[in-house]
């Protein structure tokens, strides 16, 4: 990697205080997001993907007890920034698209108000007319028909796909350096998902920044992303360029996950694959590899020694002794 990455996360650990005890939601995440790349973050439920996104945004809930490690965004140390500077960062340089746009859109404000608010917050010094014009252009750009009409619409009057387009328009208006998209298509129908994915792909031509695309779908990530990071039980276990990762997966978990996907030419008689066992309980303390209990290649040291994240090929990192 010639230049230093846009976002660099090292040893990020986040614990939550719950009624059952201390939950280790992130257990030392290492992740780099290079400039101008779409980075896919895949993992199953409970792997900590969404918590990671919130940590980057500085929006961890109050019951997040201890936070360790570092998150560097460009030259800013995010974990040691004031709430004020984080807020300004979120309005200007980092934007987020959620799985459910209704949680991020205020039901009593029109689409136009939402878009103009983004521009106001940016404080570009333009007047209201100019803001309106830019909001209209952006709605057209994200493929919303009749943008003039939609500007006056309330969130509940739009379909799920349209709301997601509005979210994307809001995110693009901030011209962020980093756009975080947390499962933006999970709630959508397949044909609408295809539309949103092709929109995100097109966006690359308009945005020079990077995108962190969080998803549980390997297929989606492989089609859309330049780089892929695989998360398991609160840690990134493997990261590589997309083509490399899917052609040459090194971590046993990544391989098992790819095997579980139903292939195009699977034989009908064949049994479908699955990963035996259960995801490590967040409350558990794991001295060794978090995947060891389910891993078919595990050897004694995997259970009591944590494998370090290391480079196995150019730009290909993996946290496994056996890789």
């Amino acid at each position: 990697m010639s230049e230093f990455p846009l976002l660099s996360i090292r040893g990020l650990g986040v614990d939550f205080t719950t009624s059952r005890g201390r939950a280790h939601v992130l257990r030392g995440v290492d992740l780099d997001i290079a400039r101008g790349r779409i980075v896919g973050l895949v993992g199953e439920s409970g792997s900590g993907k969404s918590t990671l996104a919130l940590a980057i945004l500085g929006l961890l809930p109050p019951n997040a007890g201890s936070v360790q490690g570092s998150i560097r965004f460009d030259d800013v140390d995010l974990l040691n920034s004031s709430a004020e500077s984080l807020r300004s960062l979120r309005g200007h340089r980092i934007a987020m698209i959620f799985q459910d746009p209704m949680t991020a859109l205020n039901p009593v404000f029109t689409v136009g108000t939402h878009l103009r608010d983004v521009l106001n917050a940016k404080g570009s010094g333009e007047d209201a007319m100019e803001h309106n014009k830019r909001a209209l252009e952006m709605l057209a750009k994200v493929g919303i028909p009749d943008p003039e009409q939609r500007l006056k619409a309330y969130p509940h009057e739009l379909s799920g796909g349209m709301r997601q387009r509005v979210m994307i328009a809001m995110a693009l208006l901030t011209t962020p350096d980093l756009l975080i998209a947390d499962e933006p298509t999970t709630a959508l129908d397949v044909t609408i998902e295809a539309q949103i994915v092709s929109l995100i792909r097109e966006m690359r031509t308009h945005v020079r920044g990077s995108i962190l695309f969080i998803s549980h779908s390997l297929g989606l990530v492989s089609e859309l992303c330049d780089d892929v990071a695989v998360m398991y039980a609160g840690a990134v276990v493997e990261q590589a360029p997309s083509v490399e990762l899917f052609a040459n997966p090194r971590h046993p978990y990544t391989r098992a996950l790819i095997d579980c996907e139903i292939g195009l030419d699977d034989d009908d008689g064949q049994k479908l694959r699955s990963i035996p066992g259960e995801v490590l309980d967040p409350l558990a303390v794991a001295p060794g590899c978090t995947f060891a209990a389910r891993c078919s290649l595990a050897e004694p040291r995997c259970h009591d020694q944590a494998p370090q994240f290391r480079s196995v090929a150019p730009k290909h990192g993996v946290a496994c002794f056996r890789a």
Binding site: P145, S159, G161, M162, D189, V190, T191, I192, E193, A194, Q195, V197, S198, S217, L218, G219, L220, S222, E223, V243, F246, I258, E261, G263, L264
Partner: peptide, 25 residues
Amino acid sequence: AALIAAGPVIDPLRRRPRIVLRGEI
């Protein structure tokens, strides 16, 4: 045809040409 083509595929060599349907349901 569009529905079948919309499903994402991991293997880049096996990808079908996408048919992105216009408009909403």
